[in-house]
Write a protein that binds this DNA or RNA. Structure first.
Lengths: 341, 341
DNA sequence: GACTGGCACTCTCCGCCACTGAGTGCCAAG
DNA sequence: CTTGGCACTCAGTGGCGGAGAGTGCCAGTC
């Protein structure tokens, strides 16, 4: 495709993103130093429209990029927008004071929402790749134990376990020792295998209890590990809601309230190097077809523990959003690496 | 005030709540068996308007209740709306499967949002009234400990502590023992006092470390204990947003994203018997002046551990919302009492 | 004295119309 | 291939008039 046509597309995307109004040939030729007349621009526009990169809301209006237009823009036309020094400082100081994992996630999601002025989504780091640091068993009441897993990413998982038969404190202590001996430093992915061998190694009297404990433990750690997602900045959706979201933003809000939906959004296997941008119709979820989603993995080094990203109108500042998402992912990854969390 | 005038007010509130349209004298006289003519109703309406219970959006429209009108309705005119058996079952089964405290809160808030079709807000149970069940100290790295508090309400608080000097495992064990001996079964409100005495009781070598640990512990448990609030059902705000919220629902969404605001909303000392209803202008927060807030405390017996409630348009079904809020509070209280959580 | 029917009045809402202006498509000339 | 010119299209705006809902008031009735 000729260079000038691409320039025109880029100019239209940029103008439309900043003004929220269909952009016409005249103002376009003026504002961007294209060096050609409006008529020429019109020809290019007509051609771009024919190829599906632009549409007109109505015959006598300017042009608006289509999803396909944004896609081309993102893939070939947008230049990376570096963060300002001030932004970098802001990110760092914002994340610095986090006291625990929860706090890291909470701060990240708010930060990302503020930076991009969109809805931010941050998934809790997966337990899958982390290791068991310590297992604690607390005797709550006769017949009821609290099982607490502490992992090296600073995450703590807890579950109540019913043991049917009451246990003595000594038995609980034995159990605790057995669990710790077997599981500490093990990768969580190996836990099921290790657990299978455990019953043979303990006192016969403890075996039924152990089984209950292990069932719960497995469920807590393996079956539903990364189910949690934190959200912030929904108020940003209302920024230009009438323009960006056809009917209401109702379906979007509803979708964002569903953890399952959010997980699906973030769920595709990311590594922390590649960013995924889903534009409008490219989204699998019907209700999010009027939004664009920018996600990336984050974690330790280049193995991703989880994902984070933003959800906004298709008319979004893609370079800006992408830069912010990438930067936050990098910083969060660092925080997890040197675990203040 | 004469009975009939009150009947008229009640009828107007009920009609307006269900239709969302200003209600006129004719339809009112017809639909509710008031036994008087529209003209009479008009007289009563005019009188109610003069007293500030009603307004007209414009001269030739029906009447709409004012905040003061809703207030009178809530105080004197609304009858308690009992839950259906199906609703009770729904509540119970919805809350039953909760696996930990987090899950209890998450389920409650979603349940409340579904029942009322408003925004639901649930505060995490305060640590103030609970007791220390166990203190765990995990050696993360040399010079870095993870301090985990487990309370009898099932809540787990964790903090990383920098100890400056590295410790041996034995020292950590000593510290753990000392902490547990001193603090287990103590009410959290007593922890500061107990903690003050602690340094005298341990090995001189451990004192500086102990001090760091204790500082962090106090901060975690006392200074910012009930800071967490969970939210659900924001999509419900869009239900009739244009009608209920003058400009946009932007300010409302923004307010609801601020934990601080939510805490203030819930923060007034509730016990689990009295419900607080704030209608429109009665709210202290500017941004929530177009909403009504229904809150109640919940907890063990009649001492409240925290609050929960809903936020909706002033035009809300108050009896319904109040019933739902009260019911959920009761059930959640029960769940905390028999701590599956 | 309280209620009621009747009536004039007030406004919003809706559809209609003409006008304006931004923007387009096309064509013929450079 | 680019450009200026020109006719055309169509959303948006404001004015206007009729319809309808609802009110306030008044005089009459029980």
């Amino acid at each position: 495709m000729e260079d000038r046509k691409l320039d025109v597309l880029r100019a239209i995307v940029e103008d439309f993103v900043s003004t929220h109004e269909p952009v016409g040939s005249k103002s376009l030729a003026e504002r961007h130093g294209l060096g050609v007349s409006p008529a020429t621009v019109r020809n290019d526009m007509a051609s771009l429209e024919e190829e599906g990169y632009l549409t007109q809301p109505h015959t006598s209006a300017g042009r608006v990029p289509t999803d396909k237009g944004y896609r081309l823009f993102v893939d070939r036309l947008s230049s990376v927008k570096p963060l300002s020094a001030a932004e970098k400082r802001a990110i760092q100081s914002f994340l610095q004071g986090a006291v625990d994992l929860d706090d890291v996630v909470r701060r990240s999601v708010r930060l990302l929402a503020q930076l991009t002025r969109h809805v931010a989504v941050v998934q809790y780091p997966s337990l899958q790749r982390s290791r068991v640091r310590h297992v604690e068993l607390v005797h709550l009441q006769p017949g009821r134990l609290l099982l607490v897993f502490i992992t090296d990413t600073g995450r703590v998982e807890q579950r109540v376990v019913e043991t049917h038969a009451p246990l003595s404190d000594a038995q609980v202590a034995d159990l605790r020792t057995a669990l710790n001996t077997a599981l500490v430093t093990a990768a969580l992915t190996d836990v099921p295998a290790l657990v299978a061998e455990l019953p043979d190694k303990v006192d016969a009297g403890l075996r039924p209890v152990l089984t209950s404990v292990l069932t719960v433990a497995l469920e807590a750690l393996v079956d539903r590990p990364e189910e949690r997602v934190m959200l912030a900045g929904t108020a940003n959706l209302t920024r230009a809601a009438a323009l960006d979201f056809p009917g209401t933003l109702r379906p979007v809000l509803e979708a964002l309230e569903e953890q399952v939906v959010l997980l699906k959004l973030l769920g595709e296997a990311h590594d922390s190097a590649t960013m995924v941008v889903r534009i409008g119709q490219e989204n699998e979820l019907e209700q999010l077809r009027s939004t664009s989603v920018v996600t990336i993995g984050y974690g330790l080094g280049d193995t991703a523990l989880a994902s984070l990203g933003v959800v906004g109108p298709t008319r979004m500042d893609y370079p800006g959003a992408m830069t912010a998402v990438r930067a936050v992912a990098r910083y969060v990854g660092q925080m997890l690496g040197s675990p203040t969390s």
